[in-house]
């Protein structure tokens, strides 16, 4: 690990200011992704701004009937909240389908959203990787790509966004609230938060330097039955090959976002309308333009089956 200096910010504004001021500075929340990457020298910050003392660790009701989740709320606390379990069950389910009990106790809402890809070549510093080292090439495209993306990818990078929680946040139409170093705040829709790689795969999200996530906002509950179906190589403590976050209404209407498929949670609202009548055609719309590799073409039929099984579960 490269050496770094460390400070604890007291307020969100101070944290954003500190990261903007020092080049090479990064926020540190739970540390479960950042420290892992620092040990491998994939991330090499020279200064860490620990945000554990800035507050933002509660879940509050909003005036339009939704919930406002602080950026520092842990994954365990979020999944355990009675309101989340009752009204946004897909979110609780997605969180407990991810990582391990130990990791979820430490992982935070903002850190989880910002976890980096699990592309094996991103992790192997001997290999070319445009995301880790812009311009070096992409070892995955001609390599072993079973885990990698089938849609939204580019000739520079075919990695997926690996997380579970964000897939549920996407299906729930969550928004992300931030503060920039100059004090300006903004709201970003989940749909716009993670970027497609294009020819700049080194940027995972639209966040700017020093921009701090303060909250994640959930709109008022939408009812329906909530399912998160995760397909992986072992029954627990493994990343998704394919996952689906689905909300199924009493009239049969389905909302669905997919994980493990793309550089971001994959949801195509235009395709959703047909999901309850002609799922095969709807899935074709949702995955139109997909560019799977020989190794990962199985993910598209697997996604369709995962969704069918999720829907069937709500009917039984």
């Amino acid at each position: 690990m490269k050496s770094f200096t460390y400070e604890r910010a007291k307020t969100p504004a101070e944290a954003a200011g500190s990261v903007a001021k020092a080049s090479g500075a990064k926020f540190l929340a739970g540390g479960t992704n950042l420290l892992d990457l620092m040990k491998l020298e994939i991330e090499t910050p020279t200064h860490l701004v620990d945000v554990q003392d800035i507050g933002l660790d509660t879940i509050e009701k909003t005036k339009d009937g939704g919930l406002r989740i602080g950026a520092l709320v842990t994954n365990t606390a979020l999944a355990s909240d009675q309101r989340i379990r009752r009204d946004y069950g897909v979110l609780s389910r997605a969180i407990v389908a991810g990582a391990s009990g130990q990791l979820r106790n430490k992982a935070t809402t903002a850190g989880n959203l910002l976890q980096r890809t699990r592309c094996p070549y991103f992790y192997d510093t001997n290999m070319a990787c445009n995301k880790r080292q812009p311009g070096s090439g992409c070892a995955a495209i001609q390599g072993y790509s079973r885990q990698l993306g089938v849609i939204g990818t580019s000739d520079s990078c075919i990695a997926t966004y690996p997380g579970d929680m964000a897939i549920a946040l996407r299906v729930l139409d969550a928004t992300i609230a931030t503060v920039k170093p100059d004090g300006a705040t903004r709201t970003i829709a989940m749909a716009d938060f993670h970027r497609l790689p294009g020819d700049t795969p080194q940027f995972d999200t639209v966040l700017e330097r020093g921009e701090l996530i303060t909250h994640v906002d959930l709109p008022r509950p939408i009812g329906g039955q909530h399912v998160y179906r995760k397909v992986r190589d072992r029954a627990s403590y493994a990343f998704a090959l394919v996952s689906v976050a689905a909300v199924i209404q009493p009239d049969g209407k389905v909302r669905a976002a997919f994980g493990g498929m793309a550089p971001k949670p994959w949801r195509v609202e235009a395709g959703e309308a047909g999901l309850h009548e002609d799922p095969a055609a709807a899935m074709e719309t949702i995955f139109s333009g997909a560019r799977p590799t020989e190794d990962n073409a199985f993910k598209i039929p697997l996604a369709q089956r995962a969704l069918a099984s999720a829907v069937a579960q709500t009917r039984s």
């Binding site: 070549y121 992790y123 290999m127 070892a139 390599g143 072993y144 885990q147 992986r232 493994a238 990343f239």
Partner: peptide, 28 residues
């Protein structure tokens, strides 16, 4: 598959699809 051998064992483990094997860890 093609290229699989080119990925270090550790890289594949980090990718999260293989079982965690303590025996491979000193390599890191």
């Amino acid at each position: 598959g093609k290229g699989e051998l080119a990925v270090s064992r550790r890289g594949v483990i980090v990718g999260g699809t293989s079982a965690v094997a303590l025996a491979s860890l000193p390599a890191s």
